[in-house]
Design a protein around this nucleic acid. Structure first.
Lengths: 350, 350
DNA sequence: ATGAAAGCGCTAACAA
DNA sequence: TTGTTAGCGCTTTCAT
């Protein structure tokens, strides 16, 4: 139907005999048009294969969007610091479209700080919000407010029970634990394994890695049923005690060789590992923190499973920008990111 | 300096007392301006922190770019078919900017077809070109032409000796072979391994996987020096003979268990493998063809190393669009893509 | 060498 | 309910 040339709004005007104003009104569903005109325009648009020129539209429109990103304060070389580059990349494209991105940070160990961050966020009346929901209950309160104000929001990292979100970008936690066990044992017969866990204070929300642990244990039960899994708890706030804890454990269980950790802090035990080398030992952890990567390069860590926090937040922001600016709904609502297996031989190009 | 508001070309006009026309002329270095005006405008732009609005610029300009992508014909579920989605994704963004992408295909087994494709390509006078350079000499002729016409070009997949290219996107071949060997043996002591190779006819250009094989062999020499590597050649055009070839090899070498293949066609030997199961066997191949993925899921293939041909071509087109439309040079010239390790436990989310 | 003016495709106020 | 109009920020003739 359509000519080789791009078809514009004016083509519809000419074909329908209506005016730019009217055509624009029906194209944007903003009422004040007769049924008849509506149909005429829709048909013409359809027949001509009309596609609005987003940039002309943006140029002409005074509307500017603001996207708020609610996430934990990003300590250097921490899990959340990895998301920074994703935010910056998204910022480029969003700013190119005349929008703004604002980070709203909270202390992941303080519910008050989260609550207070929600307040700041609401105050700035964002057009869309990205949420890293570490506090369950408080998050649902925030979500409720956003829904009331018809502000679309996207979850990253984890997803609460809530049905009003626009999209979710995260890692499949259970499966990542399953994969972790496969990387640790290779399905070989391993007699035992050690899982290092983080001691959490009572105040904290539920352990974000429970599902990962479940996947890990299920893999072992299915593929290496004879394997005994030990656990040891360490406290990141008292790094000086880690060595002692590990010394104690291995004194009692010298036969244990392979080690896994379900959060991003495998680097915490690297000093001990390097002080106590053991041939054939496998060590698997998560996330590409600089300290983890360095240990991977040195061969202390065998594999790292990376979950792309940067991609998650970038895609989340893009989804918001798409719906807000370009009126394009996300292709899928729940998006599980690929789990990258990093070894010393492919980390170079990561 | 600059106000909160965006600074436009008109701000420079007001500040310098010159006209839009003159300001535009100096901003685009297209001469016909006095030294004095030039300096005035540049200073003003600098001081005000002027950033051109690309979309307004694109809107106003009648210039349309055409990007040609020169690549092998994409047989269903072949390596090159994987690039299709990348081209489509790039197409979306480029068309949004008023550009066009045109595929120019050739038969990867026929030099004449390549030559002829180059002719068609040149004829359409593209603004930029993406090249998958399977024929060395012919590619250098094309590159020369493009340089003469000042048409920027980007290589994907492999890179000839040539210094006029804008950028290159590919996989580090040697390292991918090294990684392959690590995935095959895990550094464990393996007595022998079999490499399946494709028989090439004399006409063909050099084997694209030589470097990969070199990396593979070097890994073994360094980590598993006692390992004997056998080779067997198969012909994809005579699939019915593959079974016989493998039967023959394994009759003579029953001790060989682990198998690697350096191109995307590991799926060719899957029927034989499944007809002759062997516990503990490891099989490593390359590229996420549907047939390969299916075999990975079934456990016949242990790991696949994926090199993202879709990303390569998308990034290549984007680099071209950036320089052509937004006048932004690529961040790096040589870009080595990440090598993804796919196993049955992470392939789900790929 | 410079300026004026028209227009890219669209939005939104204002009239009618 | 509909049409008219004045831009958004920039490019590009065409005069001067």
């Amino acid at each position: 139907m359509a000519k080789n040339e791009t078809v514009t709004l004016m083509d519809i005007v000419r074909r329908t005999g209506l005016s730019k104003g009217t055509v624009d009104r029906v194209l944007h569903n903003r009422g004040e048009v007769s049924r008849k005109s509506y149909d005429k325009v829709m048909r013409a648009a359809e027949e001509l294969g009309y596609k609005p020129n987003v940039y002309a539209s943006l140029l002409a429109s005074p509307r500017r969007i603001v996207i708020a990103v609610l996430l934990p304060y990003q300590a250097p070389d921490s899990f959340w610091a990895l998301s920074a580059s994703g935010i910056e990349r998204a910022r480029e494209s969003v700013e190119g479209l005349g929008g703004t991105i604002v980070k709203v940070e909270y202390d992941q160990y303080s519910m008050d700080s989260f609550r207070e961050a929600c307040g700041r966020l609401l105050e700035m009346e964002p057009s869309g919000v990205v949420i890293a929901p570490l506090f369950k209950h408080e998050t649902s309160l925030l979500a409720e407010e956003l829904r009331a104000k018809e502000i679309p929001y996207v979850y990253i990292d984890s997803k609460p029970d809530d049905d009003g979100y626009l999209a979710y970008f995260g890692m499949p936690m259970y499966d990542s634990g399953y994969l972790c066990a496969d990387q640790l044992t290779g399905g070989q017969d391993v007699g035992s394994a050690l899982v290092i866990r983080i001691r959490r204070d009572k105040l904290r929300q539920s352990d974000p890695t429970v599902n990962r642990r479940a996947g890990f244990l299920d893999y072992l039960a299915e593929h290496v049923p004879a394997c005994t899994v030990h656990s040891v708890f360490i406290d990141p706030n008292e790094p000086e005690r880690i060595d002692g804890t590990l010394d104690g454990f291995f004194a009692a269980h010298p036969e244990v060789r392979d080690i896994a950790m379900f959060n991003s802090r495998i680097h915490l035990i690297v000093p001990w590992l390097e002080a106590h080398p053991r041939p054939g030992r496998r060590v698997v952890g998560f996330d590409n923190l600089a300290a983890n990567i360095a240990a991977l390069r040195r061969g202390t860590v065998s594999a790292l499973i990376a979950q792309h926090p940067d991609e998650q937040v970038r895609l989340a922001i893009d989804a918001l920008a798409d719906i807000l600016l370009l009126k394009r709904a996300p292709a899928r609502r729940d998006n599980f990111m690929h789990m990258d297996i990093l070894t010393r031989y492919n980390v170079e190009y990561y």
